[in-house]
Design a protein around this nucleic acid. Sequence first.
DNA 1: GGCAATAATGTCAAAAAGTTACAACAATAA
DNA 2: TTATTGTTGTAACTTTTTGACATTATTGCC
Lengths: 283, 283
Amino acid sequence: MNILEKITQQKAAFSKSERKVAEVILSNPQTAIHSSIATLAKMSDVSEPTVNRFCRRLDTKGFPDFKLHLAQSLANGTPFVNRHVEETDGPEEYTNKIFESTMASLEVARQSVDISVINRAVDLLTQAQRISFFGLGASASVAHDALNKFFRFNVPVVYFEDILMQRMSCMNCNEEDVVVMISHTGRTKSLVEIAQIARGNDATVIGLTSQHSPLAKECSLVVSLDVPEDTDMYMPMASRIAQLTLIDILATGFTLRRGSKFRENLKRVKETLRGSRYEKRPE
Amino acid sequence: MNILEKITQQKAAFSKSERKVAEVILSNPQTAIHSSIATLAKMSDVSEPTVNRFCRRLDTKGFPDFKLHLAQSLANGTPFVNRHVEETDGPEEYTNKIFESTMASLEVARQSVDISVINRAVDLLTQAQRISFFGLGASASVAHDALNKFFRFNVPVVYFEDILMQRMSCMNCNEEDVVVMISHTGRTKSLVEIAQIARGNDATVIGLTSQHSPLAKECSLVVSLDVPEDTDMYMPMASRIAQLTLIDILATGFTLRRGSKFRENLKRVKETLRGSRYEKRPE
DNA sequence: GGCAATAATGTCAAAAAGTTACAACAATAA
DNA sequence: TTATTGTTGTAACTTTTTGACATTATTGCC
């Protein structure tokens, strides 16, 4: 996490002297990274070991390591401005905040993915006789997008938005089916039920959901993404973008696994699409 | 300037030993920032002062200062690694490449958006009596997502995937309608036709598409996004993520414009959703 | 090819920076 | 009040970095 935000957050928990250090750093982080521990101690009017203890309290290895973290925070443009949109924000502010928080969430998501799980998911998908994508609400559009991607691969692929259709589809599953369930919270009741039905019919259920959720418990494999977003409170934004990126990754893994002959296929699909478009003008 | 790029650029001008240092750093910058000058010297098989001289040659004050610069470069993603997935990439490589290129594209998109156009689009959307979202292929799922978002706002909102339905819907447009057309290339024939029909019926047409495209010419307002992606060749990935981010931005602008009483509404929608979910377990 | 001039690199030691151990002090609870 | 715990500073110590100088390689010229 951004260390400047961390300092702000933990400020209350600091001791008197440590808070002095915090204030000096927050008020002028650029100076801080170019100072030695002695200089910074003098500026904060505390002793050098106090500065060192301050650094360790923030889970860094020591002062030099702290400076590194600080430098990284400062590198990301306006790192420490809070990324939540405020009521008083104008178009410029909210546009930038949304872009920034989306990128930041993707970075968090990237660090949280388990590569071996991705690999396993690609395994399962390549072996499937039929792939189904199900999601509700905001995740429905993610499932929709997945359909669009996998459809090009010439695999039988299915997507329903309607709960009953999803249900019926799962009733007819067998062990050669792979069902991908998409839900950020993993607490959508009807999806959990559908997962149970699918599992009951020996289908493989892959969950794009949060770990330890009710839905995750019903899945054969859980591809989890940590995205710091509370969709109970806010509209899903970053969470579904992370999910889409994951779909891209699975689709990419799929095409790579299928080998080069398979990719010829994709090219044909592309060629066919061309007819529906106006020619690209030379640029 | 990014110090990693700088190293790559100046590599030729370095002496033999300095080049050794450069190579070690480039091949593993993350390790480099956490090493002391002694460790790095040993890894590069040169003496410590050589490493120091190397740092100064890059216009830094010394080794610690160099590490600071390096840390800052690394904080901005890893901009300089090649982002295209190769046939030989394993799961680790393609996962990281896709995350990175998605983030990089968002950054490019951010710099390309015109805030005043965003603001104007929000204007139009807030004044609309009815909003329609249309897209085909990969953009259909973006339109689908937009429906999901705007639906919560208690505005009449419409979305069709079927060309004929889109067409019929546009036939019944009037001057109080806002039609949002989503297409990365802006060269999808049927969308262009539909835009013409909508304009013919005095509806306002907002295009989420690329500038100077055939579709853009038919729009009342074009919200353009520069995303470096050739969807004629590859599957749409970053382009639709940028589009989704734009939808988030428009939706956010919309809620902010509508004022606080309106946001009460959103809260109610959220409350209602709660019933369809399992309780959040205390963490 | 051999010799000088210059640049590159390493050795060693001094200096700077950072860290640890410990003692003094302050706050808090018994 | 006294014991206990937590906070802070002093001083010794360690690590890291840098500077001075010697040595070795490289280049250009005769």
